[in-house]
């Protein structure tokens, strides 16, 4: 839903780096999206492909999207565990089976690298 606005923010950020480092053209951009966000990689890619044509350094850029696992802390036994699937499946503690957990990591939307 809101992927259009975040994809524009992503492009603004890339262009900022491109300008600072005097880069002519970008081959690839690596980003990661946490499993506990509501950003759909599919939609981000769709908007990126549409928007990039307006920016000469990005016309040939490929977006590589990594879905970043989240970390939850069990509210009952206090242990941390990793969550690989998306947020629609609510996590359960693999240590004690509790369904009461707290999200610690997995809400990030990061740009990791540029390949030039």
């Amino acid at each position: 839903m809101h992927e259009l606005s975040v994809t524009q923010s992503l492009i603004d950020l890339i262009l900022e780096e491109v300008e600072q480092r005097s880069i002519k053209s970008v081959k690839k951009v690596g980003i990661s999206v946490g499993v506990f966000t509501t950003f759909e990689p599919y939609a981000i890619n769709f908007y990126f492909e549409t928007l990039k044509t307006e920016y000469p350094p990005l016309t040939d850029t490929v977006l590589e999207i990594e879905l970043k696992p989240g970390v939850c802390r069990c509210q009952e036994c206090g242990k941390d565990f990793e969550v690989k699937e998306t947020v629609s499946n609510l996590p359960q503690c693999p240590h004690c089976g509790s369904i009461f957990v707290e999200i610690k990591e997995g809400r990030e939307f990061l740009i990791n690298y540029l390949e030039v």
């Binding site: 975040v6 923010s9 992503l10 950020l13 990061l110 740009i111 990791n112 540029l114 390949e115």
Partner: peptide, 14 residues
């Protein structure tokens, strides 16, 4: 060449 960057896309809003 790969250039490592570690920035949040939402940083302006944050």
């Amino acid at each position: 060449m790969q250039i490592k960057i570690h920035r949040s896309v939402l940083e302006k809003n944050e």
